[in-house]
């Protein structure tokens, strides 16, 4: 058997991420693992992952203002959200799938469980999209600003406007699901999910208004870069493929 090429990944930077137990977000209380994680060696099961195969079969669907397929356009403030996916070494993560989902402009999800908030559904908005990063790691979506919405975590709890982002990356351990927030949102300091990330890293989830992304007579623009785990050293013997 030939020796498999093994590209190892640096350890997950746990201190950049929320703790598993964050009681201010009440749903963590009975759902966080309270026994120690077991550290293991990285085998092919960990250094590979579904990212490349899943990207192969995915279809790009990056305009959420029209992808409901009704022929109509979603209501709300149209925006372009773009940025790069980089690994922790600063290398672009090319050709990886990004999947997003979000509430509509009124703060309502097109989901059967979102029934307590008396905000209107938008028949022209599904709230889901996907795209594949290009060779420079760039992704780009057209969507609308999601509305804030109430949730039952504490008195008068409102989630700040956010877009859920799922990134596969190249390996099992590079899997990242996060949320993108908007610069200047007054709800951010009040939100336990945002605040679950440590103070030094939480602002990495906040997109900035970018006038160069904004398009004349069309949409305002936001820029947001995403950083995932990266390999310890680039493979030298062969390129991906």
């Amino acid at each position: 058997m030939t020796e498999p090429m093994v590209r190892h990944y640096g350890p997950k930077a746990h201190t950049d991420h929320p703790p598993f137990n964050y009681p201010d977000y009440r749903s963590t209380v009975l759902r966080f693992p309270n026994k120690d994680m077991v550290s293991i060696v990285q085998t092919l099961s960990e250094t590979t992952g579904p990212g490349p195969a899943w990207t192969e079969i995915a279809e790009e669907d990056a305009d959420l203002t029209t992808n409901a397929g009704t022929g109509g356009t979603a209501l709300g403030q149209r925006i372009i959200v773009t940025g790069r996916v980089l690994d922790e070494n600063g290398e672009p993560v090319a050709n990886t799938l990004i999947e997003i989902w979000q509430a509509n402009a009124s703060g309502r999800y097109a989901h059967w469980r979102d029934e307590d908030h008396p905000a209107p559904l938008d028949p022209n908005f599904l709230g889901a999209g996907q795209c594949i990063t290009d060779g420079e790691g760039v992704y780009r979506f057209t969507t609308i600003v999601p509305g804030p919405y109430p949730w039952p975590n504490h008195r008068n709890a409102w989630r700040p406007s956010h877009i859920h982002f799922s990134i596969m990356g190249p390996a099992l351990g590079t899997r990242l699901v996060t949320q993108m927030y908007f610069e200047g949102d007054p709800l951010l300091p009040l939100d336990p999910i945002y605040n679950s990330a440590p103070p030094h890293s939480r602002e990495r989830m906040v997109a900035s208004y970018d006038h160069d992304v904004t398009e004349e007579n069309w949409a305002t623009g936001y820029r947001w870069d995403i950083v995932i785990r990266g390999p310890l050293a680039a493979p030298t013997d062969q390129e991906d493929g």
């Binding site: 997950k12 929320p18 922790e88 070494n89 999947e99 999800y109 989901h111 995403i226 995932i228």
Partner: peptide, 21 residues
Amino acid sequence: MARLGETPSQTVGPFFSIGLS
């Protein structure tokens, strides 16, 4: 080169099936 900090993880929330399933 200095390592870039990772973007923090967040919950998938209750409505992930819109985007992920």
